[in-house]
């Protein structure tokens, strides 16, 4: 059997996904047996021009991590889509926009003003902002354009599969790679993870009836190590997050923050969590309800921690 040709690419990414892609332990040898990595900017000789020269669809699969934040990200996403038979959004940034997607609560202007003018260490009397084209004495320099809105990969090009997680766990990554290697591919659009149900299903904490009179912030209490964190009033996102990670955070006594994205069939992860939380608030009195929810300091930023660009609303409206 001919070896598979795989491309790895990072767009607006932290690099954690690059590490995770190959943090598959000794299985790396199995991968090396079955596939050649033909394009991998951070590990291999990198040339956009080389990719441009490749025939369309000559790459079997592209694992694309990172969101679309700049014109360069978008350009490469389109290029790789054209050259690849299978496009995989790998990791939360590329799948849903992830934490860096919280930038969609603001816009470019606000971000620039803050970073290049307002921050207390910045000394910029001329109010200089980075420019896409700058004349310097020796010639011209270019920078890619910084977009107003962070986009997911699927909002930019057609995507075949999604691999959840920030970053995806080793076993999740392997599930995707194994599907590629064996050719046993799931239907287009599948989110590849061991679990389709919620993180709660994998969580070893004791679960009882969930009725909440007061929400706490993680620094305010020392939770009981055995009992469900949500039942103790911590905003644990496990109930509305796809399983597959093995419930890592609750096992470290910290609430799940939702990095594996929505459970199967849910389109807007934030709306789902909002709904689930409302069901367990233990009050039928409007005033008391208001008091209880006022303990949630940043509902939008919490419910959409990893999925703002992929949400129904996508970004905040700025007047």
């Amino acid at each position: 059997m001919a070896k598979l040709k795989i491309a790895l690419y990072w767009a607006a990414s932290c690099g954690g996904c690059d590490i995770a892609t190959l943090a598959i332990g000794e299985k790396i040898l199995k991968l090396a047996e079955a596939a050649d990595i033909v394009f991998w900017p951070i590990g291999l000789d990198f040339k956009y021009a080389d990719v441009e020269k490749m025939p369309d669809k000559s790459i079997d699969a592209c694992l694309f991590n990172g969101a679309i934040r700049t014109s360069e990200n978008e350009h490469v996403a389109k290029l790789l889509r054209a050259k690849s038979k299978i496009m995989i959004a790998y990791g939360s940034c590329s799948y849903e926009g992830c934490i860096p997607g919280l930038s969609n609560f603001y816009n470019r202007q606000m971000t620039f003003e803050h970073v290049y003018i307002e921050t207390p260490t910045t000394d910029n009397p001329g109010k200089i902002f980075p420019q896409t084209k700058v004349k310097v004495p020796e010639g011209e320099l270019e920078l890619p354009e910084f977009y107003d809105t962070v986009k997911t990969l699927a909002q930019t090009v057609d995507v075949d599969y999604f691999v959840p997680g920030c970053p995806p766990e080793e076993k999740t990554t392997w599930l995707a790679l194994e599907a590629l290697i064996t050719g046993k591919l799931p239907p287009k659009g599948t989110v590849i993870s061991h679990a389709v149900k919620a993180v709660c299903d994998e969580c070893p904490r004791k679960k009882g009836e969930k009725k909440i009179k007061k929400f706490y912030r993680p620094y305010e209490i020392v939770p009981d190590p055995e009992i469900c964190l949500l039942e103790q009033g911590l905003l644990c996102y496990g109930i509305a997050t796809r399983g597959g990670c093995g419930a890592l955070c609750p096992q470290a006594n910290m609430p799940c923050t939702g990095c594996y994205g929505p459970v199967e069939g849910v389109i807007d992860q934030g709306a789902h969590f909002l709904s689930a939380l409302s069901s367990i608030i233990d009050s039928n009195d409007p005033e008391e309800i208001q008091k209880i929810i006022d303990d949630i300091p940043d509902p939008a930023g919490t419910f959409y921690r990893y999925s703002l660009p992929d949400s129904l609303l996508r970004r905040a409206r700025i007047k």
């Binding site: 607006a12 934040r69 700049t70 360069e72 860096p100 919280l102 930038s103 609560f105 603001y106 606000m110 971000t111 803050h114 970073v115 921050t119 980075p130 920078l143 890619p144 910084f146 912030r217 993680p218 620094y219 923050t257 300091p297 940043d298 930023g301 919490t302 921690r305």
Partner: peptide, 17 residues
């Protein structure tokens, strides 16, 4: 050639996060 704006979008988030 990249900026992601963490300093800005941290505004509004709970400090403990």
């Amino acid at each position: 050639p990249e900026l992601r704006g963490f300093e800005k979008f941290s505004e509004g988030r709970p400090a403990e996060d």
